[in-house]
Design a protein around this nucleic acid. Structure first.
Lengths: 305, 305
DNA sequence: CAAACTGTCTGATCTGATCATACAAAAGGG
DNA sequence: CCCTTTTGTATGATCAGATCAGACAGTTTG
């Protein structure tokens, strides 16, 4: 495995074969005649065979030359195809996109984007892993991770797609049972549905026009999965804190109502995180663009609602 | 057709893929780690895509990397095969040997060597052009030319295979009709069969132990093909001058007898001439070796006869 | 926490590709 | 037959880029 073949010389050789002249080949390649002459000489030396019979006037291939030309052309075509395929993949999505997203955000936001993505790029394949907090993008060979909340990772590159607001909601029935002038200050005395998915379980910071209230909630039920917690709130068990995207439909259709609507909780970010790489494949870039657009649409919708 | 792809980097990449490590790849390639790192980086830059995910601890291919590896392996295998095929051709005969030889020498000497050659290298093909004085080896794509007599060409490389002696012969019947003490001095008064193939038609220089006779012959028949001239002599029309190889059989079997046996005519050379080339293919080299051996055998046979 | 190993970076070095020019040989034109 | 043009090659200067040795930061392992 000692000596490497210098494959770059193949292009010189095939060009000479095609043009039938060193001078013409040099022109086409944009180098000096002497370079072509030298490179062909080196190639012949490597092969230990004469490829081209050169009179001062004409250059004709030997039998070896003709044989080698066919092989060289195959190699170059193959190489061009390989380079093209990969380089095109940098422009146009191709292959399989492996992504991961939190379950609730995934079902609400990512799944529709996946559908749109597959409509736009029908020959793509998508593998989605809907799980909260995936360990390692590199080990799992994941192209794209969606993280909602507050980024913990540091080594991965990330792009912010949007913002989540956390909203306190209750079923209309439960909301009606609350005192009309209730504020977060009475939070501890109310019935809460806890959601282990969101951080800051212990304390929540409510704020309104510079006025802030830091309070502990008092979960009467603690669920470790968002959909379960949501189901509890829908059932009228108590108040719950959820990211806007997961309750917006229920609010719009009257199944839930916001509570403390003029107060706000700390907002988190929605981030796309990528494994460390010099270049971002098109399949990832386009998907993230789609998702970001969906996020912008959503935030406008929320803003106007 | 502007930018050339640097195909040499493919070997770096495949080695990293196979060893699964930059360090191991560097070892196998016999270069520094930094070189491999740099070359892979350049390759990824050329492609505009990341091929290998590298943690400090492990290196895993991306989807593009795995895809590209397959293509790269095909290319490298193809290249190795192409180089091998040609390089092997420099050691072991392969392909087609195109040769040219004079008709008479060809039928007597070259044809048997061709037979032996094909027995030794059964997968070879030979194209023989039996014609006297072929114009241009390069234009006709001829690998090997046999020239008998006196070399005129200058630009081609040549190798001397042997010597021809020219012999004056006659049929036994015609020889019997000659005066027993006839010498070349009486040449002009004898009946000659002319052979346009041999040069020096006009005058012949006979020599014996320092004694020389320059004389003109007197052709009663002039043939432009050696075999025809030979047929005339065999028919007893007159004396003829022929190269030794073309009459040795007839002499041995008594159909012809030498005349002026103790005189000699200018001897010529038998040469193998080659088109200008840096390297001589094995198919040519081996054939010439065989022919040279046959010539040595012949000259010994003549010497002992 | 230390040791070993990873891939990458840095600056010096040097191979080898490239260039501009000159040249010999051959073909074509007058 | 001379002259011009065009061929591929030779030459020496120049420069890009490959290579190397060593240092480095990060991770895994014990």
């Amino acid at each position: 495995m000692a000596e490497l073949l210098n494959l770059n010389r193949l292009a010189y050789f095939t060009t000479v074969m095609e043009t039938g002249s060193f001078t013409a080949a040099a022109d086409r390649l944009g180098v000096a005649k002497a370079v072509v002459s030298h490179q062909i000489g080196k190639l012949e030396e490597e092969l230990g065979a004469t490829l081209l019979q050169r009179t001062t006037r004409r250059v004709t291939p030997t039998e070896e030359g003709r044989l080698f030309y066919d092989r060289a052309m195959i190699i170059l075509r193959e190489a061009e195809a390989a380079y093209g395929e990969i380089s095109r993949g940098a422009v146009e999505p191709s292959g399989t996109l492996r992504l991961t997203a939190p379950l609730d955000y995934g079902t609400k936001m990512v799944a529709p984007v996946m559908a749109a993505y597959l409509r736009t790029y029908p020959h793509m394949r998508v593998e989605a892993i809907f799980d909260d907090a995936v360990s390692n993008l590199v080990d799992e060979q994941i192209d794209l991770g969606i993280r909602v909340g507050w980024l913990a990772d540091s080594s991965n590159q990330a792009r912010r797609l949007g913002t989540i607001r956390q909203i306190v909601v209750a079923s209309p029935g439960f909301a009606a049972s609350l005192p009309p002038d209730v504020t977060p200050r009475q939070a501890r005395s109310l019935a809460w549905v806890g959601n282990a998915q969101l951080r800051g379980i212990g304390q929540w910071l409510f704020s309104r026009e510079g006025e802030t209230v830091l309070t502990e909630l008092n979960p009467v039920i603690m669920c470790d999965k968002s959909p379960a917690a949501l189901a509890c709130v829908l059932a009228g068990i108590g108040l719950g804190v959820f990211p806007d995207y997961s309750v917006s439909d229920d609010i719009a259709e009257g199944r839930l109502v916001p509570v403390f609507a003029d107060w706000s909780l700390p907002s988190g970010g929605i981030h796309a995180v990528f494994p460390p790489a010099r270049f971002r494949p098109a399949k990832v870039r386009t998907f993230v663009d789609l998702l970001a657009a969906a996020e912008r649409r959503r935030s406008r919708g929320v803003a106007t609602a």
